[in-house]
Design a protein around this nucleic acid. Structure first.
Length: 826
DNA sequence: GAGCACTGC
């Protein structure tokens, strides 16, 4: 960061004292150099970074998660037992969400993921991972040498019962059961805090039709794991991998905790899809509960389509038909009911049924889908809009933060929704600067950033108790909308924007844009103020602005690359993907583009049926392009090396991004032995292999080479999984690795070309690169090891648009290699 | 010589 900028900030701090802290006032002298409203990418302000950070992309995993059910109990005032102590539910869920005390007591000040911070992360990560091995992460007495575990479990179960009975969903148990006895499908709308995720499976386990397991899908791993732990406690059971008798389990990538007698299994959506590829009729389940449908991930859309067909087909030799429960937080029930209804017309004549106790007489027009609405628990939230639209919502947020702080009594933290790391960091700096000038008798302000690229220990700071006479201001991305529930919040400031990834079909590249959020997202953000007490929400837009917003966030399936989704369909035997029952149908162009892409990958034949390698690719936990690389590597006899490269491409950047010039030079020197002039992929290969061969101290090795240890641990997990999966698919990895040679390098790059033939470009006379398919100008990203080099052709594994089209993950190739591959495909 | 929201197998 330049000195000039720094001085600029100091100047801002001075002007802060003159700030007119009224909503209308425009008296700030501060002017932001760029405004993400117009363009997130242009003219980015330099960040005030004093430490080295890795290039962000994915990163911190959270131990805290957002789930209605696991949190609700702890946050409801009702969850107090008669003896005045918090219910077991309450104490457990809050306790389980606390950071380890060591971490809590000594958070490092700098939140960038520095090498030092990495050490810290590993500690916390290990701590959290170890928690998963115990039946309860909250009650030490059940962990080790408990005198009689089963008595403990029963005691715990009984202690939790009163809390469960006070949940809004509890009175609906019987109507939910009877609805599913009559019909196979139930659409259940449960507002935040209703208890649906934990209770619905338990309501169903003793039903006559429920002879096997119930699956409950979740969009996120943390949610699946935490809910399973919670339900295990409530049912007085161990976790599925601890005892053959255990009734509750979960299944997420790299972590399967289910057993032969698991009756209730929480799993991520992706895991259920994988299971559906192996067990097309879901024979092992009596019911599938699809939770958080309103989030509308691609996976959930696929699951819904598959389930619709499964229900319509009747599934042959099943003794009891498969029951399906669709759970959603928003009131958009009708679309879901209609979706499952249409097929039911021909299937059954049973009469419609509404299990809705609370709503008045709802017109009953469905034939075999039940509906149920469960009210949530939410305190009222007072809404304030801006009188006039603003472009500068960082400034508006700043004013509001201080306005609230001066006016409103403690306690009551402020949660500000912003678009990304740079706006968060600007506002953090401003809040801190301005807070310095506050009178001594005014309570302090503590600004805490929150975004996914933030390392875990820094994210954990939001869960630490607020110091005396202090108000927290959490500056967050939309991670706080769904993934993380920030405790203590009574004020929400919503900028009304978020960054959204958009896939452009024509160019086949994606870009990240700042766009207005939808009404449903705005409502979700507002709701964050009313979880613990009545709250207030300030929207940094006008009421008209709100009225102009889209009703719902565009489902992911309408704005992403569909090749993975379509390959999954094909692998499930859906021949005509154009007639797949989509809840929202992607444009024909997008479907055709994806079909063509799969054809080029050799995953489909030109008549559109899946090939043998196509079905192999579908079973790999990779994008079709990366899967194709592995399949080709079998032919080229370099599968082991290809797995190493693909594993490294599957995680966030493994090289730490260094900020200061000094550190950059240092790192360049240290990494010299890793860098390969052939390009980024061979560099990744060497890095993974050297790391794998390091047996003494891998952590130290990473420090020495300025490599992220956490990312490398992840690489090793994926590598192991890919080895196992390839073995299962009959793709053999030879033990012997051929020694490095030009021929071997060519073989590896040939595999990459097979997967990424549309990501190739050639050098033009004017020194720019143009893609061979599409004739688009691309530039080699400065993070590449061959940045600045001129080579006749390149292949790249990532193509992003941020102000300019960038190729990232680049290798040098000869043009005739490209031609060779193109000819083999066409 | 750039900079990226959030998930997941």
């Amino acid at each position: 960061m330049s000195r000039k900028r720094k001085q600029g900030h100091t100047g801002d701090a001075e002007s802060a004292n003159n700030l007119n802290l009224t909503c209308k006032g425009t008296g700030t002298k501060r002017k932001f150099e760029d405004e993400a409203v117009q363009n997130s990418t242009s003219g980015g302000r330099k960040k005030n970074k004093s430490q080295d950070i890795p290039i962000r992309k994915g990163a911190g995993r959270l131990t805290k998660f957002d789930d209605d059910d696991a949190n609700e109990v702890s946050q409801e005032p009702i969850a107090i037992t008669q003896n005045g102590k918090p219910t077991g539910a309450s104490s457990s869920s809050s306790a389980s969400l606390q950071p380890p005390s060591k971490v809590a007591s000594k958070p490092p000040r700098n939140y960038h993921r520095s090498e030092g911070a990495e050490k810290f992360e590993r500690k916390t990560q290990r701590h959290h991972e170890s928690k998963g091995k115990f039946p309860s992460n909250t009650h030490n007495e059940t962990k080790h040498n408990a005198p009689n575990p089963s008595i403990q479990l029963v005691k715990r179960r009984d202690a939790l019962l009163p809390g469960r009975k006070s949940l809004p969903i509890w009175p609906h148990a019987e109507s939910i059961r009877s609805a599913l006895r009559k019909n196979n499908v139930l659409v259940l709308t449960g507002e935040t805090g209703s208890g649906k995720s934990t209770q619905v499976p338990q309501f169903l386990t003793s039903e006559p039709w429920c002879t096997k397991c119930i699956a409950i899908t979740q969009p996120r791993r943390v949610a699946a794991i935490s809910l399973a732990r919670r339900v295990a406690e409530e049912m007085g059971s161990l976790m599925g991998n601890q005892s053959p008798a255990a009734k509750v389990g979960y299944s997420v990538r790299f972590d399967n905790a289910s057993g032969p007698n698991t009756r209730v299994k929480f799993l991520t959506e992706g895991m259920l899809l994988q299971e559906m590829l192996r067990d097309a009729n879901l024979e092992q389940y009596s019911a599938i509960v699809v939770d958080e449908v309103h989030e509308r991930s691609v996976n959930v859309d696929l699951i819904l389509g598959f389930l619709k067909e499964l229900v319509a087909r009747g599934m042959g030799k099943r003794k009891h038909p498969l029951k399906v429960v669709i759970m959603s937080a928003t009131a958009d029930v009708d679309a879901l009911v209609n979706f499952f209804d249409q097929n039911a017309d021909s299937n059954t004549g049973s009469s419609a049924n509404s299990a809705d106790n609370s709503a008045a007489t709802e017109p009953v027009d469905s034939k075999s889908v039940s509906k149920c609405f469960v009210e949530g628990r939410q305190y009222p939230v007072k809404m304030t809009y801006l009188p006039n639209p603003t472009q500068d919502w960082v400034e508006s947020a700043l004013k509001l933060i201080f306005q609230i702080h001066y006016k409103e009594p403690l306690p009551g933290d402020i949660l500000v929704f912003l678009t990304g790391q740079d706006t968060i960091e600007s506002l953090e700096k401003l809040v801190n600067d301005y807070a310095e000038g506050m009178d001594k008798d005014v309570p302090k302000l503590l600004a805490l950033p929150l975004f996914a690229a933030l390392p875990q220990h820094a994210q954990q700071r939001i869960f630490e108790p607020t110091p005396n006479r202090t108000r927290k201001v959490i500056l967050a991305t939309n991670i706080a909308e769904t993934s993380v529930t920030v405790p203590g919040v009574r004020f929400v400031i919503d900028c009304g924007k978020s960054k959204i990834k958009q896939f452009r079909n024509r160019l086949g590249l994606e870009s990240l844009l700042v766009k207005p959020i939808s009404k449903s997202a705005a409502i979700q953000r507002k709701g964050r103020a009313g979880r613990e007490a009545p709250g207030q929400c300030y929207r940094l837009y006008t009421e008209e602005g709100y009225a102009e917003m889209e009703e719902r966030t565009t489902p992911e399936i309408l704005r992403c690359d569909l090749s993975h989704a379509i390959l999954t369909m094909k692998a499930r035997g859906i021949d005509d993907v154009l007639s797949f029952p989509f809840l929202d149908r992607p444009p024909r162009e997008a479907l055709e583009k994806a079909l063509l892409q799969l054809l080029h990958l050799g995953a489909l034949t030109d008549t559109g049926s899946i090939t043998e390698s196509g079905s192999r690719i579908a079973k790999l936990p990779l994008t079709p392009t990366l899967g194709r690389v592995l399949v080709e590597a079998v032919e080229q006899d370099c599968l082991g090396d290809a797995i190493d490269i693909v594993s490294a491409l599957s995680v966030e950047n493994i090289f730490l991004n260094l900020v200061t010039e000094e550190r950059k030079e240092e790192a360049e020197e240290a990494r010299r032995e890793l860098f390969r002039r052939e390009g980024d992929h061979m560099t990744l290969l060497v890095t993974v292999q050297q790391y794998a061969e390091e047996h003494a101290d891998r952590k130290l090795w990473c420090q020495k080479h300025f490599v992220s240890h956490r990312a490398m641990q992840n690489v090793m997990n994926i590598r192991k999984q890919l080895h196992e999966q390839c073995k299962r698919l009959g793709l053999s990895v030879s033990e012997e690795r051929p020694p490095p040679s030009d021929a071997h390098t060519k073989a590896i790059l040939h595999c990459l070309l097979k997967g990424f033939i549309s990501n190739t470009a050639r050098l033009m006379p004017d020194s720019s690169y143009r893609t061979l398919m599409g004739n688009q100008t691309v530039s080699i990203h400065p993070s590449s090891v061959i940045f600045g080099r001129k080579t006749e052709g390149i292949v790249f594994t990532e193509f992003v648009f941020t102000g300019k089209a960038w190729a990232r993950g680049v290798s040098a190739v000869q043009l005739d290699w490209i031609t060779e591959v193109v000819e083999s495909i066409m």
